[in-house]
Design a protein around this nucleic acid. Structure first.
Lengths: 108, 108
DNA sequence: AAAATATACATTGACACGCGAGGTATAGCG
DNA sequence: CGCTATACCTCGCGTGTCAATGTATATTTT
């Protein structure tokens, strides 16, 4: 069983995984995307973003490669691995269960 | 605007506030309550519980008093202040908004 | 051409939350 | 008298997030 703090905390990485499910992308774009899709409500700071990439890559959830650097600043693209997909699905399930539970605890 | 980490994190205190809205209660009972109401899914550890009480009391969200010690171990009861009620309502609103947003970001 | 802005990546140190581990004390039961 | 349940409390650690700071390139503005 997960404990509640692991559920309440650290959903930033799951949001990243969900973004990468739509296709390979790079840090800056993912950050902007999250910001824009939520009308600025969820803002992932760069430090958090890149720290999380490191963590996800070292645990095998994502892989990275450098994009063609012939135009604009260089971009490091990320790709969701099979393991990452599985983690995403688990986290989605957990989120459903736990967020429902919290709703009921908050009377919401 | 709140940033996302403040929302995702630290909902333990809001759960406590919600419990206290039902009436004054004491630490051990609140902990058991949370455990039982969620079938053990959400388990608030004692260290977290008492740390959070301190924080909530020093910021004026709750008040405490010692219960009648004539039977059993002594109990410190907590009471939700008017300020605490307001915070609870805000947090409930925020939770609604943010959890909905996260659901949409996770495609759930 | 120079300055400003947007894009893009990265690291370091600090802070706050939750918790493991440990402690104290009382009441009831066999 | 030990054992269990109840009931409270604190110290120090791990982890996630972020502010601050730095680098570099492309585009737009002046």
């Amino acid at each position: 069983m997960l404990n509640s703090s692991e559920v309440l905390r650290g959903y930033m990485d799951t949001i990243i995984l969900a973004q990468l499910k739509e296709g390979d992308s790079y840090g800056y774009s993912i950050g902007k995307n999250i910001h824009d899709l939520t009308d600025g409500m969820i803002e992932m700071k760069e430090a958090t973003l890149y720290t999380t990439f490191r963590k996800l890559e070292s645990s095998g959830m994502i892989e990275s490669y450098w994009g063609d650097g012939n135009s604009g600043a260089r971009r490091r693209y990320y790709h969701l691995t099979e393991e990452g997909k599985q983690l995403l699905e688990e986290n989605q399930k957990d989120w459903k269960r736990y967020s429902k539970m919290i709703c009921s605890m908050l009377g919401v």
